[in-house]
């Protein structure tokens, strides 16, 4: 974050954003984080479709995985998991 902010001479023309929001991590927004119990997960992938952040990806083995760098801890995934295998855990 020590990077010097760009001025008008070097900023891209036309006010085009030059950074991906992947560089802006929202993982510290939430107070809780989802923990998936894979022993009970049915690999239905629904949590991937419900996550507002796109923070849940489907691994090659079919299980889903949370990217905590971006998870905002909203709890939608835990609320919607059909087998209730996602638990929201308070962050320390």
């Amino acid at each position: 974050m020590s990077e010097r902010k760009r001025g008008w001479k070097t900023l891209p023309k036309g006010a085009v954003p030059y950074k991906s929001s992947k560089d802006y991590q929202t993982g510290d927004w939430g107070v809780a984080k989802p923990i998936i119990d894979r022993t009970r997960c049915s690999k239905c992938t629904l949590c991937h479709f419900f996550c507002p952040e796109g923070a849940i990806t489907v691994r090659v083995d079919g299980y889903t995985e949370v990217n905590y760098d971006y998870c905002k801890g909203c709890g939608v995934c835990a609320n919607e998991c059909p087998v209730k295998c996602i638990k929201m855990e308070m962050k320390k």
Binding site: S21, T26, G54, G75
Partner: peptide
């Protein structure tokens, strides 16, 4: 197409 790092409220349906 819409990736991580957006700043809507947690749990917002718009991005879903």
């Amino acid at each position: 197409a819409l990736i991580c790092g957006g700043r809507l409220c947690a749990g917002c349906d718009e991005t879903i």
